[in-house]
């Protein structure tokens, strides 16, 4: 290679140096990705090592106890599931309706712009601020107390922007030619939206919904600040019942100095992660299943 007419020694050395830097850069980037991946693995193995031995049927169906070895999480698990159910019932219809308005009806005027900017902004407001809103509005002003309904309402406001944004995305993916075809047959706007656009967008909407609810199920801070009690020792029996949720129970156990309770926290985390994994898997399955069906 040396002595070719294309480049003299100086240029060649510069090229070699650049090559080396290029490789070093790639190696560094890969190292960082491995580090990120490594911390995920460390997190999971750590939790697994600490908590796996505590997992049992009794743990899942048991109630809190002063003795760590007897404590279970049924009260928190059922609380989480009820709260998420109510959150979804409140947030999904309103979120989907908002998205339909913004995507299909609004005339791109000033008001639509303001609503859009506002939603983007709400999506980035810290979750604990929603907790303060829930405390001031639902718990105090509306007199709901520290109930399931107050907690679910707070979480519904929290996930609303997420549902609106993902639903708009799904609606935007429906080809305009479908809408035209429907209008050309004499369909009204709502008929077009209801019979043609929504069914096509449904898998996308559901996927977004599941992801939004799986965010809600892991939320701790807003429920703590509305005062979801950490020492509730029973499963909630209705909308007005006091409640606790899985993340709060985990937080409660982590804060204890005894190693036994920390093992309970780890086991609780495993249950929470399993719940999240199931929800995400459902979202992915939905997306793939319907994508195949449509194409």
């Amino acid at each position: 290679m040396t002595g070719t007419s294309l480049a003299d020694g100086g240029v060649q050395r510069a090229i070699a140096r650049r090559r080396f830097l290029d490789l070093a850069f790639q190696a560094l980037a890969l190292l960082i990705l491995i580090l990120a991946l490594g911390s995920l693995i460390a997190l999971i193995t750590d939790v697994w090592r600490d908590g796996f031995s505590r997992l049992s049927w009794d743990f899942l169906t048991g109630f809190p106890s002063r003795r760590a070895a007897n404590a279970g999480i049924w009260h928190a698990l059922s609380g989480s599931m009820l709260v998420i159910l109510v959150t979804g019932t409140l947030a999904v219809p309103i979120g989907v309706a908002s998205a339909i308005y913004l995507e299909e009806y609004s005339r791109r005027n000033l008001m639509a712009r303001i609503i859009e900017i506002n939603i983007t902004n709400l999506a980035a407001v810290p979750s604990i601020i929603y907790g303060l809103l829930g405390l001031g509005l639902f718990v105090r002003a509306m007199g709901m107390g520290r109930s399931v309904l107050a907690g679910a309402s707070t979480l519904a406001l929290l996930v609303l922007p997420v549902i609106i944004l993902s639903t708009r995305e799904a609606l935007r993916a429906v080809p305009p030619s479908i809408r035209e075809g429907s209008y050309a047959l004499g369909a009204t706007k709502w008929q077009t939206v209801w019979y043609q656009v929504l069914p096509i967008a449904l898998p996308g909407i559901l996927t977004g919904m599941i992801l939004a609810l799986s965010r809600a199920i892991g939320e701790t801070a807003p429920l703590i600040s509305i005062g979801a009690l950490t020492f509730v020792a029973f499963a909630p029996d209705g909308l007005w019942s006091p409640f606790t949720v899985l993340p709060i129970q985990i937080f409660n156990w982590v804060s204890r100095p005894q190693v036994e309770f920390q093992a309970n926290a780890a086991a609780g985390i495993l249950v929470l992660l399993a719940l999240l994994l199931t929800m995400n898997a459902a979202a992915i399955w939905l997306r793939d299943h319907y994508q195949k069906k449509l194409s």
């Binding site: 080809p175 030619s177 479908i178 035209e180 075809g181 050309a184 069914p199 096509i200 449509l294």
Partner: peptide
């Protein structure tokens, strides 16, 4: 009837 056929799915 449109340029690109647009049957509903």
């Amino acid at each position: 009837v449109f340029q690109k056929s647009n049957p509903f799915p």
